[in-house]
Design a protein around this nucleic acid. Structure first.
Lengths: 194, 194
DNA sequence: GTCTATAGAAAGATAGAC
DNA sequence: GTCTATCTTTCTATAGAC
């Protein structure tokens, strides 16, 4: 058996990793399977041994990328809500997430692309969004922050809208100012007087 | 002279109108010049007498659509800020804008597409976004609402993020709840106790 | 499982007739 | 200015060798 199960699993992982680096910044259409596979260190033909078609890797990569998000993985045991905010929502709404993060958040970077895709894709996206909401609510609770669900949902819109907008704008100063404003007002909404 | 200047202007307008109905909902790549022109009542070949290439109609249509936005055109002479809110930001953050408006706002519907396009396109988008900011600030001022620029910018992120997200989600109930939350918190941020 | 080669479809842009 | 016809490129997906 020239190819072990582990070998196949490794190839699959490489393709998902490649997808998480290409799709969010370039979008669905602009990433060809050729580019995706070369970036993964393989060739076109091998793709279909792992995924049935392009929309499948897209849907799976959305979950793969979100699961490995630095914000969700943040796990300092701080009880200081202000510090927690800076490490998570504050990092999300930062210029470095917008411009240099190699696998930025698909919720923000793909938000207007999702609607055009297969049901499977929209489902993955919605699932990831729901995870974000429950992640936020869980952390608010664990930091004893009393917050209405309305506020949590609006904060999610600020995060995703702020990052998506900052990425679209042609004016770096304005984009940074927007991100700063979103950080400030989100923090106010959580009622931190930091 | 078989074709008058007026005739050419009318054709140009038809193409822009077609673009404003197709691009926001389908995105740049999914609208072919063929579809765009047929929708305008013309044929492919005629396109290039009006625009140099596809990116040009895209850039121009973003400004065309935004200029004709029902929110910017709203012109009731109400001095009631709550009423004004409902007619503008409230309408923007409504399910009907997300699902049935024939030419929805390009700021929200194209936000993650812009980054991939030519400089000209990003420039049009940024210009329209700046217009939104000054529109909001002007109306706040004329309604004697004291508001920090930070808050205005965050409200713009809530509007664009809320609508874009609602359009992406697979779950209509959740999308409507998100929009409701964004309306509520935006109104709170403007400090209306309606 | 991974490779190269290729079939088949779609779309941007141009040419030339009217 | 608008039309039809076409060139050219790009890409998804499959076939078949190793």
């Amino acid at each position: 058996m020239p190819y072990s199960k582990e070998h196949k699993q490794q190839s699959r992982e490489k393709i998902l990793q490649s997808a998480s680096e290409l799709f969010p910044r370039k979008g669905y259409e602009a990433v060809s399977i050729d580019e995706l596979m070369i970036h993964a260190g393989l060739t076109r033909g091998a793709f279909y041994s792992h995924f049935s078609d392009k929309s499948e890797i897209y849907a799976e990569s959305i979950i793969y990328t979100a699961t490995r998000s630095p914000i969700v993985l943040e796990n300092s045991d701080t009880t200081d809500i202000s510090e927690w905010f800076d490490n998570t929502i504050g990092q999300y709404l930062s210029p470095s997430h917008v411009t240099t993060q190699p696998s930025p958040c698909p919720l923000a970077f793909l938000v207007t692309d999702i609607n055009k895709r297969e049901k499977k894709v929209r489902n993955s996206y919605t699932q990831v969004y729901k995870s974000l909401l429950s992640f936020l609510n869980r952390r608010f609770k664990s930091h004893s922050v009393e917050i209405k669900n309305e506020t949590t949902m609006t904060i999610s819109a600020i995060m995703i809208g702020g990052v998506a907008l900052a990425n679209a704008l042609d004016d770096k100063k304005l984009a940074d100012k927007l991100l700063r404003s979103c950080r400030k007002i989100s923090k106010d909404l959580i009622k931190i007087d930091a």
